[in-house]
């Protein structure tokens, strides 16, 4: 409508005569609007777009800033409360924090992993499909056509990237706070051995990676819930409630038979990596369990989403 160069004659044909139109379609549409090949760059564009979109939502940024603030809060509390004299008790690794600021990374991860990290992951994964459905953008993505499997894979990838970024935000904020408030330097591990700051940083990186991977099962569950409903809020709430319920179940001794199969059960096993030699059994059990959850709920999400009528 802004193309002034269109001649009145071209604008005029109110009733396109079939003959004329058929030849026009063959000549013009055949050349310009024909079948285009799918390219690798085109295929991957949705994944990039999805990751970009996740981090452009104000909600995501708010969640990340809360996650960044938590280690600062923990560090200040530990600093004020101990006042140089380290008392017993408190959360995991707190006693070590006063000796070495690097331990704040592990404390912060141990404190955020049961509640804050999974809550924020539940919000992101739960909203992934349901949010697009309630906004109506899902139908436009699908007629683009994004492809249902490709869209789901992109959503899963973006949520995993979010897990990694969220964990990194907690770890980096804890590292900065720890360095500011407590002495750094040689780190005494839980097994009593001392390692240099460089090696300790590598351990921190490894722990952060394991923590991020621990959330993969939850991402698959959240994505599955997200394909069940057309309401983003409902999907987010369901996922978060599920995380809390499962952790409550994990605390009942009577349920010890099923507890090894709960996706939250092995979350804190990353402490085993703070020994020399590193003790991998529980960590690998946890990662294996996450892989099973991803396979089961990923398949369920795919089966549901690939066949579902999109009426929103």
């Amino acid at each position: 409508m802004s193309r002034a160069e269109v001649s009145p004659e071209e604008m005029a044909p109110e009733r396109v005569a079939p003959e004329r139109a058929v030849s026009g379609a063959v000549v013009r549409a055949g050349v310009r609007a024909g079948v285009r090949p799918q390219t690798a760059a085109g295929f991957l564009a949705l994944f990039r777009s999805e990751v970009g979109l996740t981090f452009r939502r104000a909600r995501t940024l708010a969640l990340l800033s809360i996650l960044a603030a938590l280690p600062v809060l923990i560090g200040v509390v530990v600093r004020v409360e101990t006042g140089g004299e380290s008392g017993g008790g408190g959360p995991a690794f707190v006693a070590q924090v006063t000796q070495n600021g690097l331990f704040l990374v592990f404390t912060a991860l141990a404190l955020t992993l049961p509640v804050f990290l999974p809550m924020s992951v539940g919000v992101v994964a739960g909203d992934a499909v349901a949010g697009e459905a309630s906004a109506g953008t899902l139908r436009y993505l699908l007629v683009a056509p994004a492809g249902r499997t490709r869209l789901l894979a992109a959503k899963f990838t973006a949520a995993l990237v979010y897990c990694a970024v969220a964990t990194a935000v907690v770890a980096l904020s804890a590292l900065a706070t720890g360095a500011a408030l407590f002495p750094m330097g040689e780190v005494t591990l839980l097994s009593g051995d001392a390692i240099g700051p460089g090696a300790a940083l590598l351990r921190a990186l490894l722990v952060a990676a394991v923590v991020a991977a621990s959330l993969a099962g939850l991402v698959a569950i959240g994505l599955f819930v997200s394909t069940l409903t057309g309401s983003g809020i409902a999907a987010m709430a369901t996922t978060v409630v599920l995380v809390i319920t499962v952790q409550i179940l994990d605390s009942f001794p009577q349920l010890h038979a099923v507890q090894p199969y709960l996706f939250t059960h092995g979350w804190l096993s990353f402490g085993d990596l703070l020994r020399t030699p590193m003790y991998w059994d529980n960590v690998l059990d946890n990662l294996g369990l996450q892989a099973v959850y991803v396979a089961v709920f990923g398949s369920a999400a795919w089966a549901r989403f690939a066949s579902r009528d999109i009426t929103a």
Partner: peptide, 16 residues
Amino acid sequence: LARFDAADPTADPATR
């Protein structure tokens, strides 16, 4: 528009 275009795997990102 860029978002919906990225959803189409046959659309060329270079000309987006």
